[in-house]
Design a protein around this nucleic acid. Structure first.
Lengths: 115, 115
DNA sequence: CACTTGATAAAGCAGATGCTTGAGTAGCGC
DNA sequence: GCGCTACTCAAGCATCTGCTTTATCAAGTG
C-alpha cells in the first residue's frame, strides 16, 4: 500500500471534518467570511483553541485566510469539499454497479428457472 | 452548543473515513463482502489491528456483519455514506446560495451605475 | 510613547488512537 | 475428545489530539 498525495489530502480532509466544532465552523463560514474572534464567540473554549481548529481546517484546504487590519478573515474553499464527495461517490458508484450486476445475474437465473 | 445524535453520528462517520486503511477497506467492500482475514491480507499490520479498524467502521454504521461458519463477513452499508454526503452538500448549498445573492447584488449595483 | 485588540507560539496535560503481543473463544474436521 | 481456523479481548505503549495557560507579536488608538 503506497501512500499518495491524494491519500494525505483525504486524511486531512476527513480528519478536519471529524470534529464537531470544526464542522460547525465550516457551516458558519458557508454563510460568509468571519474573523477568528467572531468564530470563537459561540464557544465556551478559548480563542486559542478555536485558532488551532482553524489551522487544522486551513491545512486541510477547507478554508483560506486573508489579512485585513489586525484580523485574519477566514473564508470557505468549497472546492476542497468536492474531493471528499468525490471519494464517497466513487465507493457508492462501485457498490451500485455491483448491485446492478447482481440483479442482472439474479434476473438471468430467474429466467432460466422459468424455462 | 448542544450535541445531538446527528453530531455523534457525523463524528463517528468522518472519524472512520479519516484513516487511510479504513477508507481502503470501505473501497474494498464496495466491490463485495469479505471476511476479516481477507481484508487483513493486503496489509503489513496484524489481523487484530484490522479487526479494530473494522470495529470502528461498524460503530460508525458504515459496515455491518453477519456470521457464516467461523467467519464474520463484513458488508458495506452505503446508506451511511449518504449522511456524510448530505452534510457536505448542505454546506455547499448554503455557500452557493450566498454566491447567488452576491451576484444578484453586484448585478443590481452594476445596473444602478449604468443608469 | 504606552495601551488595547486580534491573533499566533509554545509548553504542558489528560485522554484518544493505532498499533503490538499474548491469551481466550466459537465453530468446524478428525 | 484434540487441534485447527477465524476471530475477539485485553494490556501495554508510543504518538496524536484537543484543550489549557502564559507569553509574544503586529496593527491600530489614545
Amino acid at each position: 500500500m503506497v501512500t499518495t498525495i491524494e491519500d494525505q489530502r483525504l486524511d486531512a480532509l476527513f480528519t478536519a471534518l471529524s470534529d464537531r466544532t470544526r464542522r460547525d465552523i465550516v457551516a458558519r463560514l458557508s454563510t460568509g467570511e468571519a474573523t477568528v474572534k467572531e468564530l470563537a464567540k459561540p464557544y465556551a473554549m478559548s480563542m486559542q483553541a478555536v485558532s488551532q481548529h482553524i489551522r487544522v481546517l486551513e491545512r486541510s484546504g477547507l478554508i483560506s485566510r486573508g489579512r485585513h487590519r489586525q484580523t485574519r478573515p477566514c473564508r470557505l474553499e468549497p472546492a476542497a469539499l468536492e474531493a471528499a464527495v468525490s471519494w464517497i461517490e466513487e465507493s457508492q458508484r462501485t457498490w451500485s454497479e455491483r448491485m446492478d450486476r447482481l440483479e442482472t445475474h439474479l434476473a438471468c437465473l430467474q429466467k432460466r428457472e422459468n424455462q
